[in-house]
Design a protein around this nucleic acid. Structure first.
Lengths: 179, 179
DNA sequence: TCGAAATTTCTGTCTTTACAGAAATCTATA
DNA sequence: TATAGATTTCTGTAAAGACAGAAATTTCGA
């Protein structure tokens, strides 16, 4: 990491640590950070040198980032090697990350909760009533989250940002009508 | 897990798996699931039996859940043993989880990005301009998220739910004024 | 304050994940 | 189509995390 400016090094290191808290491999997150702040696409060899990790590690990590959809291969004229570029627009990037996390985490849970609710509906043991109700509460919450995601996803970025910025004013005016 | 109804078993198992995708230990997530659907507080021994894990594992996992703030100790009259109860209200629970994740993940990243932005501001290498700008974009995004969290956190649950349900209508009407 | 019950902490093992280096495969051009 | 370059897959090792069982500590009633 010698030839990177200190602020870039600090960012990459932190992003790597943060990744681990998200269940993302440290190297994967570091490569993503490096590509995100890099103006030009980098080839695998350059990534190895910058981060001091094995070529194979870079190869696998890049594949992972491509699975997430936030890094893509770029071909440079007169160069056989694959180069890699991150999505550069922050909002676009987090849109994709959000979509992917929903797909991997929310959707399977929704399915599970619906299945469990059906199963629970079949049994009529009095002792199960509480558990059944809790599960339905939880299902309702996940459905709310999922619907909210869908709505936000349909919104153009500019509108979404505006809506988020104004959310407190909006909420306050809604407040007067609730109950 | 023999004496739990099948739907409860399926839920607990899934919640455990989901935990691992969130960076939460499987046992921790399973215990949380069990307590969440349990009407009565359970003691550590009962949790061991239900989930088939070691007493020590339960002890450590319960401490972790208490650190998160979503499980608390309950004392029952005429019983020396500690009993444990999950927060039962789904919205209250996710409020706490959100607060904790913000504290652990967003806040440190905000601090890092601000530090990096200051560092970047000090250097005036022409080649760093792009990286610097990307970092500032990212910082802007995290500030937006953080502010949004604060606003939502101040909202009473009922209002927050209403606002989320109406978010598409709101966004649509905002849309007509943006740009 | 003694002792049994309850709980936590410690220790070692097992499993999983991360990763380097080597081998194998693929790719493009000469 | 041969071969040098580029990339991926394979294999073994190292590190981290999860967890059981034992030991130590704490707690509370007698």
């Amino acid at each position: 990491m010698k030839d990177l400016p200190p602020f870039a090094q600090h960012f990459i290191l932190h992003w790597g640590e943060m990744g681990t808290k998200w269940g993302i491999n440290r190297t994967v997150a570091q490569i993503h950070a490096l590509l995100f702040i890099s103006e030009e696409p980098l080839n695998a060899e350059q990534i190895c040198e910058q981060l001091g990790v094995a070529r194979s590690n870079v190869s696998n990590s890049l594949k992972e980032l491509q699975n997430w959809g936030i890094v893509r291969v770029v071909h440079l004229a007169g160069d056989r090697r694959d180069h890699f570029a991150s999505i550069q627009d922050v909002y676009e990037m987090f849109r994709i990350i959000a979509a992917e996390r929903k797909r991997r985490e929310i959707d399977p849970t929704l399915r599970n909760l619906r299945d469990c609710a059906v199963e629970a509906g079949e049994s009529h043991e009095a002792g199960d009533a509480y558990a059944k109700d809790q599960l339905e509460q939880l299902l309702g919450f996940f459905e709310l989250v999922s619907d909210f995601y869908d709505k936000m996803d349909r919104l153009p970025t500019k509108h979404a940002i505006k809506a988020i910025r104004m959310s407190d004013k909006i909420a306050k005016s809604i407040g007067t009508f609730v109950k």
